[in-house]
Protein backbone atom coordinates (compact mmCIF):
# COMPACT_ATOMS: atom_id res chain seq x y z
CA UNK A 1 0.00 0.00 0.00
CA UNK A 2 2.95 2.34 0.59
CA UNK A 3 3.63 2.51 -3.12
CA UNK A 4 -0.02 3.41 -3.73
CA UNK A 5 0.12 6.11 -1.06
CA UNK A 6 3.25 7.59 -2.68
CA UNK A 7 1.43 7.90 -5.99
CA UNK A 8 -1.42 9.89 -4.41
CA UNK A 9 -1.70 13.56 -3.43
CA UNK A 10 -2.61 14.88 0.04
CA UNK A 11 -6.38 14.72 -0.58
CA UNK A 12 -7.59 11.41 -2.01
CA UNK A 13 -11.08 11.25 -3.53
CA UNK A 14 -12.24 7.63 -3.80
CA UNK A 15 -15.03 6.96 -6.30
CA UNK A 16 -16.40 3.93 -8.13
CA UNK A 17 -19.55 1.99 -8.90
CA UNK A 18 -21.82 0.63 -6.16
CA UNK A 19 -20.07 -2.31 -4.55
CA UNK A 20 -16.73 -1.69 -6.29
CA UNK A 21 -14.89 -1.85 -2.96
CA UNK A 22 -14.47 1.92 -2.45
CA UNK A 23 -15.15 1.90 1.25
CA UNK A 24 -13.01 -1.15 2.02
CA UNK A 25 -10.18 0.42 -0.03
CA UNK A 26 -10.62 3.78 1.76
CA UNK A 27 -10.40 2.09 5.17
CA UNK A 28 -7.32 0.07 4.21
CA UNK A 29 -5.72 3.20 2.72
CA UNK A 30 -6.43 5.25 5.85
CA UNK A 31 -5.07 2.56 8.17
CA UNK A 32 -1.85 2.24 6.15
CA UNK A 33 -1.47 6.02 6.02
CA UNK A 34 -2.01 6.29 9.78
CA UNK A 35 0.94 4.00 10.47
CA UNK A 36 3.23 6.37 8.54
CA UNK A 37 1.52 9.56 9.65
CA UNK A 38 2.38 9.18 13.30
CA UNK A 39 6.09 9.42 12.43
CA UNK A 40 5.51 12.57 10.34
CA UNK A 41 3.15 14.33 12.74
CA UNK A 42 0.35 14.24 10.16
CA UNK A 43 -3.36 13.81 10.84
CA UNK A 44 -5.31 11.31 8.75
CA UNK A 45 -9.01 12.01 8.28
CA UNK A 46 -11.51 9.78 6.51
CA UNK A 47 -14.78 11.38 5.46
CA UNK A 48 -17.79 9.24 4.62
CA UNK A 49 -19.47 11.04 1.72
CA UNK A 50 -21.82 8.17 0.90
CA UNK A 51 -25.21 9.85 0.71
CA UNK A 52 -26.70 7.08 -1.42
CA UNK A 53 -26.54 3.73 0.29
CA UNK A 54 -27.35 3.43 3.99
CA UNK A 55 -25.54 0.10 4.53
CA UNK A 56 -21.97 -1.17 4.65
CA UNK A 57 -20.64 2.38 4.93
CA UNK A 58 -17.36 3.65 6.32
CA UNK A 59 -19.19 5.14 9.31
CA UNK A 60 -19.76 1.60 10.62
CA UNK A 61 -16.01 1.38 11.23
CA UNK A 62 -15.74 4.53 13.40
CA UNK A 63 -14.47 2.62 16.44
CA UNK A 64 -11.76 0.97 14.35
CA UNK A 65 -10.74 4.32 12.84
CA UNK A 66 -10.45 6.00 16.22
CA UNK A 67 -8.44 3.09 17.57
CA UNK A 68 -6.00 3.59 14.69
CA UNK A 69 -5.78 7.33 15.39
CA UNK A 70 -7.75 8.27 12.26
CA UNK A 71 -10.27 11.08 12.42
CA UNK A 72 -13.66 9.89 11.12
CA UNK A 73 -15.76 12.61 9.49
CA UNK A 74 -19.32 11.29 9.70
CA UNK A 75 -22.80 12.67 10.43
CA UNK A 76 -23.84 13.10 14.07
CA UNK A 77 -24.83 9.96 16.02
CA UNK A 78 -28.61 10.59 15.91
CA UNK A 79 -28.63 10.38 12.11
CA UNK A 80 -25.62 8.10 11.59
CA UNK A 81 -27.81 5.17 10.54
CA UNK A 82 -30.24 7.07 8.37
CA UNK A 83 -30.82 7.39 4.65
CA UNK A 84 -30.59 11.18 4.70
CA UNK A 85 -28.38 13.00 2.16
CA UNK A 86 -25.97 14.51 4.70
CA UNK A 87 -22.28 14.20 5.44
CA UNK A 88 -20.11 15.04 8.40
CA UNK A 89 -18.96 18.55 9.34
CA UNK A 90 -15.56 20.13 8.80
CA UNK A 91 -14.66 18.82 5.35
CA UNK A 92 -14.23 22.32 3.92
CA UNK A 93 -11.61 23.22 6.55
CA UNK A 94 -9.76 19.93 6.27
CA UNK A 95 -9.39 20.40 2.51
CA UNK A 96 -7.09 23.35 3.16
CA UNK A 97 -5.02 22.09 6.11
CA UNK A 98 -1.58 21.10 4.86
CA UNK A 99 -0.88 18.78 7.80
CA UNK A 100 -4.01 16.72 7.16
CA UNK A 101 -4.22 13.84 4.71
CA UNK A 102 -7.88 13.64 3.85
CA UNK A 103 -9.61 10.68 2.22
CA UNK A 104 -13.08 11.26 0.80
CA UNK A 105 -15.05 8.00 0.48
CA UNK A 106 -17.70 8.89 -2.07
CA UNK A 107 -21.00 7.07 -2.72
CA UNK A 108 -21.48 4.71 -5.63
CA UNK A 109 -21.98 5.51 -9.34
CA UNK A 110 -22.56 8.98 -10.72
CA UNK A 111 -25.43 9.38 -8.24
CA UNK A 112 -22.99 9.09 -5.35
CA UNK A 113 -20.51 11.39 -7.05
CA UNK A 114 -23.16 14.13 -7.01
CA UNK A 115 -22.13 14.78 -3.40
CA UNK A 116 -18.77 16.01 -4.73
CA UNK A 117 -20.36 18.67 -6.89
CA UNK A 118 -20.64 21.20 -4.06
CA UNK A 119 -17.04 20.52 -3.00
CA UNK A 120 -15.47 20.38 -6.44
CA UNK A 121 -14.25 23.98 -6.44
CA UNK A 122 -12.42 23.60 -3.17
CA UNK A 123 -11.10 20.15 -4.06
CA UNK A 124 -9.72 21.54 -7.34
CA UNK A 125 -7.79 24.15 -5.35
CA UNK A 126 -6.16 21.55 -3.09
CA UNK A 127 -3.47 18.97 -3.98
CA UNK A 128 -5.72 16.03 -4.72
CA UNK A 129 -5.95 12.73 -6.55
CA UNK A 130 -9.27 11.32 -7.60
CA UNK A 131 -9.25 7.56 -8.08
CA UNK A 132 -11.92 5.18 -9.32
CA UNK A 133 -12.02 1.70 -7.80
CA UNK A 134 -13.08 -0.88 -10.40
CA UNK A 135 -14.29 -4.40 -9.87
CA UNK A 136 -14.93 -5.83 -13.34
CA UNK A 137 -17.10 -8.55 -11.77
CA UNK A 138 -19.77 -5.96 -10.94
CA UNK A 139 -22.57 -5.78 -13.52
CA UNK A 140 -22.14 -2.21 -14.78
CA UNK A 141 -18.32 -2.25 -15.01
CA UNK A 142 -17.82 -5.71 -16.45
CA UNK A 143 -16.17 -4.58 -19.69
CA UNK A 144 -14.05 -1.76 -21.07
CA UNK A 145 -17.08 0.13 -22.37
CA UNK A 146 -18.91 -0.11 -19.03
CA UNK A 147 -15.86 1.09 -17.10
CA UNK A 148 -15.51 4.02 -19.50
CA UNK A 149 -19.18 4.97 -19.10
CA UNK A 150 -18.83 4.80 -15.31
CA UNK A 151 -15.72 7.00 -15.35
CA UNK A 152 -17.30 9.64 -17.58
CA UNK A 153 -20.52 9.63 -15.55
CA UNK A 154 -18.67 10.11 -12.28
CA UNK A 155 -16.46 12.87 -13.70
CA UNK A 156 -19.47 14.76 -15.06
CA UNK A 157 -21.36 14.68 -11.77
CA UNK A 158 -18.31 15.31 -9.57
CA UNK A 159 -17.03 18.07 -11.86
CA UNK A 160 -13.56 16.65 -11.24
CA UNK A 161 -11.17 14.52 -13.30
CA UNK A 162 -10.24 10.96 -12.40
CA UNK A 163 -6.44 10.62 -12.14
CA UNK A 164 -6.04 6.88 -11.71
CA UNK A 165 -7.84 3.54 -11.50
CA UNK A 166 -7.56 1.08 -8.62
CA UNK A 167 -8.01 -2.47 -9.85
CA UNK A 168 -10.13 -4.60 -7.51
CA UNK A 169 -11.11 -7.74 -9.45
CA UNK A 170 -12.81 -10.18 -7.09
CA UNK A 171 -15.73 -12.56 -6.66
CA UNK A 172 -15.83 -12.34 -2.86
CA UNK A 173 -15.19 -15.74 -1.27
CA UNK A 174 -15.26 -17.39 -4.72
CA UNK A 175 -12.25 -15.41 -5.97
CA UNK A 176 -9.57 -17.43 -7.77
CA UNK A 177 -6.12 -16.40 -8.99
CA UNK A 178 -7.39 -16.82 -12.55
CA UNK A 179 -10.36 -14.55 -11.84
CA UNK A 180 -8.04 -11.86 -10.44
CA UNK A 181 -5.78 -12.02 -13.49
CA UNK A 182 -8.63 -12.05 -15.99
CA UNK A 183 -10.37 -9.14 -14.25
CA UNK A 184 -7.17 -7.14 -13.88
CA UNK A 185 -6.61 -7.50 -17.60
CA UNK A 186 -10.00 -5.86 -18.26
CA UNK A 187 -9.21 -2.99 -15.87
CA UNK A 188 -5.84 -2.40 -17.56
CA UNK A 189 -7.48 -2.38 -20.99
CA UNK A 190 -10.04 0.16 -19.74
CA UNK A 191 -7.27 2.29 -18.22
CA UNK A 192 -5.39 2.29 -21.53
CA UNK A 193 -8.55 3.43 -23.30
CA UNK A 194 -9.10 6.17 -20.72
CA UNK A 195 -5.37 7.10 -20.77
CA UNK A 196 -5.17 6.65 -17.01
CA UNK A 197 -2.64 4.76 -14.88
CA UNK A 198 -3.62 1.78 -12.71
CA UNK A 199 -1.93 2.53 -9.38
CA UNK A 200 -2.74 -0.66 -7.46
CA UNK A 201 -4.13 -4.17 -7.72
CA UNK A 202 -6.13 -5.03 -4.60
CA UNK A 203 -6.26 -8.64 -3.39
CA UNK A 204 -7.76 -10.01 -0.18
CA UNK A 205 -4.85 -10.68 2.21
CA UNK A 206 -5.69 -14.36 2.72
CA UNK A 207 -5.79 -14.94 -1.04
CA UNK A 208 -2.65 -12.94 -1.71
CA UNK A 209 -0.72 -15.25 0.64
CA UNK A 210 -1.68 -18.16 -1.61
CA UNK A 211 -1.04 -16.58 -5.00
CA UNK A 212 1.53 -13.85 -4.36
CA UNK A 213 4.19 -14.99 -6.86
CA UNK A 214 1.77 -15.41 -9.74
CA UNK A 215 -0.06 -12.15 -9.12
CA UNK A 216 3.06 -10.04 -8.66
CA UNK A 217 4.42 -11.39 -11.96
CA UNK A 218 1.10 -10.68 -13.66
CA UNK A 219 0.84 -7.15 -12.25
CA UNK A 220 4.32 -6.16 -13.47
CA UNK A 221 5.07 -2.63 -12.29
CA UNK A 222 1.64 -2.18 -10.64
CA UNK A 223 1.84 -2.70 -6.86
CA UNK A 224 -0.19 -5.64 -5.52
CA UNK A 225 -1.90 -4.52 -2.33
CA UNK A 226 -3.19 -6.83 0.44
CA UNK A 227 -6.66 -5.84 1.64
CA UNK A 228 -8.44 -6.65 4.91
CA UNK A 229 -12.23 -6.66 4.99
CA UNK A 230 -13.70 -4.39 7.68
CA UNK A 231 -17.32 -3.72 6.72
CA UNK A 232 -18.77 -7.06 5.61
CA UNK A 233 -19.14 -9.57 8.49
CA UNK A 234 -16.80 -12.57 8.52
CA UNK A 235 -19.60 -15.11 8.33
CA UNK A 236 -20.61 -13.73 4.93
CA UNK A 237 -17.01 -13.98 3.69
CA UNK A 238 -16.71 -17.72 4.20
CA UNK A 239 -17.34 -20.40 1.66
CA UNK A 240 -19.90 -22.79 3.14
CA UNK A 241 -18.40 -25.97 4.57
Amino acid sequence: MLQVIESLQRVVVVTGSFGSGKSEFSLNLAISMAEEARKLGQVIALADLDIINPYFRTREACALLEEKGIKPIVPSPEVLYSDLPIYGPGIHNLLHQDDVRLILDVGGDEMGATALGSLSGEISNSEHSMVMVVNPYRPFTHDVAGIGRMARGIEARARLKIHALISNPNLGPNTTAEAVMKGHHIVRAAAAELRLPVVGLLVLRRFLKLWEDRLVTEAGSIPVVPIDIHLSPWWLQQKMR
Binding site: F18, Y137, R138, P139, G172, A179
Partner: peptide
Protein backbone atom coordinates in the same frame (compact mmCIF):
# COMPACT_ATOMS: atom_id res chain seq x y z
CA UNK B 1 -20.61 -16.62 -15.65
CA UNK B 2 -20.16 -15.55 -12.04
CA UNK B 3 -20.57 -11.91 -11.10
CA UNK B 4 -20.81 -10.05 -7.80
CA UNK B 5 -24.30 -8.74 -7.10
CA UNK B 6 -26.18 -7.05 -4.33
CA UNK B 7 -29.40 -8.73 -3.27
CA UNK B 8 -31.63 -6.00 -4.64
CA UNK B 9 -29.86 -5.93 -8.02
CA UNK B 10 -30.12 -9.72 -8.14
CA UNK B 11 -33.89 -9.68 -7.59
CA UNK B 12 -34.29 -7.22 -10.47
CA UNK B 13 -32.13 -9.23 -12.89
CA UNK B 14 -33.79 -12.50 -11.87
Amino acid sequence: EQILMKGNEAVAEA
